[in-house]
Design a protein around this nucleic acid. Structure first.
Lengths: 194, 194
DNA sequence: GTCTATACACCGATAGAC
DNA sequence: GTCTATCGGTGTATAGAC
């Protein structure tokens, strides 16, 4: 009962291996090199088989992002349930998947509607989770209405994390230490101790 | 005296038109579509001529970024000399060139060493200018050692501006109003009035 | 400066055998 | 499921005429 439609199961070993290959290619060579032939080569099969598992290259791209997105949201969910959620959510953000791959997906999302929908859903869901962590910590810290709305703090922190990763990937580090220090003490004030 | 080397002058009308075409293609179709044939088509010449003005496509890409980079740094320089430099520098950041094009250059920089060097120089130079504006404003506001180091504020603000532009380009706006409000009042506190 | 023409490789996608 | 074979199209880059 492996197949009752015209295509192979996405969850199959070969299909997963193709998604692995797609990640590697995006990270190391960019979306310009993400071709059915290159995916087949890295997977150790013939090009034709890629079109057995994925109807089009666009579909393969969307599935690659979706798998990463699910993993990342699971990591965020785990962080939210931890001892010091704010610290742990920040750790997830600053150790997020390779920034080169992120850059490729950002660029691709502008011209692949299916991918764009997935990226939008991911951004909004992860922002919601970050806001939840911030709201709880701010409430626990016992301030009234904070000068910094949680959602603004979430954008500031997540965009700064992305910027640090992106710049580090090309060799820029100006101000990174100071920035990490500011975030660290902001978290330390809201969520002290262990 | 138009040519005494093997290639056309970059500053010529045709060469500039090719850079214009490259910008349009990057913005609307992505780097995968930035080909010598497409540049020639948009410029209204034959493909062969692109290689008269640029030795390789990589060189054309670097020159396209450099021209944009120079323009952006000039805008920042102008903002620094204005009446309310902090406000004006922020306006430059939040109205910076198309975020789709930026995404393409980010992705390309990972695999084009010449472009990477230009991107690094641009980031560091613009950060220096932003820090200068912040330091002056913080000094004028007459605080002691600020809790927020100017370089950290520069990263926070510029990365948030990029994030807002990037997300708006794909249709996300969650928290943007709150964030813009936070930045606006931060600037208003450091640089009140007109 | 700008052109025609071309070499050679690679692309997405499909037909159909086993 | 996986393969061979193939279609029509596009890519970078170059040779050389005018």
């Amino acid at each position: 009962m492996a197949t009752n439609r015209r295509m192979g199961q996405k969850g199959s070993a070969v299909g997963s291996a193709m998604l692995d290959a797609a990640e590697t290619i995006l990270r190391e060579e960019g979306y310009g090199a993400l071709t059915s032939r290159r995916v087949a080569e890295l997977t150790g099969v013939k090009q034709r088989l890629v079109y057995y598992y994925f109807a089009t290259m666009d579909e393969l791209i969307v599935d690659t992002f979706r798998r990463l997105s699910v993993r990342e949201l699971e990591r965020l969910g785990g962080a939210l349930g931890g001892e010091r959620p704010l610290r742990e959510v920040w750790d997830v953000c600053i150790h997020t998947g390779d920034s080169r791959m992120i850059a490729e997906f950002m660029a691709l999302a502008h011209r692949n509607a299916g991918l764009r929908a997935e990226v939008i859903a991911f951004i909004e869901q992860s922002r919601r989770m970050q806001v939840a962590a911030l709201e709880r910590a701010m409430t626990a810290a016992g301030k009234g209405t904070p000068a910094l709305p949680p959602v603004a703090a979430a954008i500031l922190a997540s965009s700064a994390a992305l910027a640090v990763l992106r710049e580090a990937a090309i060799g820029v580090e100006m101000g990174h230490a100071e920035l990490l220090d500011v975030i660290g003490s902001f978290i330390g004030r809201l969520e002290p101790g262990g």
